[in-house]
Amino acid sequence: MTQFTTPLYSKIIGTGSFLPNAAVGNDELAARLAKDNVETSDTWIRERTGITQRYIASPEQTASELGAHAARAALEMAGITADRVDLIIVATSTPDSTFPSTACLLQAKIGADHAAAFDVMAVCSGFVYALTTADAMIKSGQTQTVLVVGAEVFSRLMDWKDRTTCVLFGDGAGAVVLQASDEPGVLANRLHANGKLAHILTAEGSINGGSVVGDPFLRMDGQAVFKQAVSVLGDVAKEVLAAANLTADDVDWLIPHQANVRILQATAKRLGVSMDKVITTVHLHGNTSAASVPLALDVAVRDGRVKKGQVILLQGVGGGFTWGANLVRF
């Protein structure tokens, strides 16, 4: 990897996203589940989660393919070609294969022939972990331009007979281009984990001798996850703001992990931030895990809400148990 002059900052210069196929609304999903005698409804889903629809990948669509579409959109916005990318970091819990990494497969798809590539797995905190890593790589002088992608096909981890989980998740990808800059961009990052809470959100299955060993489906203690998410998102937001010598009043937009509208509301309340300043896309996308934060960011950039110079607080929380935050000036 080429050694570059150590810059003062890294800055997001492009965003992109991609959603597979057509949206699957709550009524359509309920009709599908009813065929397996799983009872749910638009009202039941909407009241508990705020979700109205989600996108589900077709069998041939992989995380690397979804991510490649999002990456191309981010590169186009940034105005750079793939051959200028030095590093690709893909955050995913649903890789195309055990190896090679999804990042390597994505590299080939977009023609970023000069880029190093690796995956990060921190479930729904994955993008925040990946962006923190990319920022550190740039500030250390190891890289100049990094493509950070969150890409998931979580529908493949679903037990479609468990209505408490299968209605929550969707598939998609989001990406940002991070580049060395003389202007402040990524202002502060904070990451945390607590492996003692691994059991509250887990997909334990693994491959051994050509067979799946353990439970292959996502399992979640919804109440425990909700309680932990609200607590840690509030704490890490205050922590990252303090690290940048800013307060919640300085934040133009809050983009938490899009898991459940009630978590977004509770997080905003803990910070004293109006819901008018919270970017919310969970109702349209469901929980897309590591893709949710960059997806929401790209939506808000492209519809004009997020503008140059604004301060954005990005937050992730997920299985592991993991959580973290990035404070960025766009």
Rank of each mutant, 00 (worst) to 15 (best):
M1Q: 02
Q3A: 10
Q3H: 10
T5N: 12
T6S: 14
Y9F: 15
I13W: 03
P20F: 13
N21K: 00
N21I: 00
G25H: 11
G25F: 11
E28P: 03
A30P: 06
A31C: 06
E39Q: 15
D42G: 11
E47K: 15
R48L: 09
T49V: 09
A57E: 05
A57Q: 05
A68T: 09
L75C: 07
L75E: 11
E76F: 06
A82P: 05
V90G: 01
S93T: 13
D96Q: 14
P100I: 08
C104R: 05
C104E: 05
Q107P: 14
I110F: 11
A112N: 07
A112K: 08
M121Q: 09
A130S: 15
T132P: 08
T133E: 00
I138A: 07
K139M: 10
Q144L: 08
V153W: 01
M158A: 08
G170Q: 04
D171N: 12
A175M: 09
E183N: 13
L187E: 11
A188V: 13
A193Q: 14
A198F: 13
A203Q: 13
G210Q: 12
G210F: 01
V212H: 02
P216N: 06
D221I: 09
A229E: 03
V240T: 15
A248S: 15
L254I: 06
H257S: 09
Q258T: 08
N260G: 04
R262P: 04
Q265E: 15
Q265L: 02
R270G: 03
R270F: 00
G272I: 07
M275P: 03
D276E: 15
V278F: 02
S292L: 02
R305F: 03
R305A: 12
V317G: 05
G318F: 01
G319I: 04
G319Q: 12
G319Y: 09
T322Q: 10
V328R: 01
R329P: 06
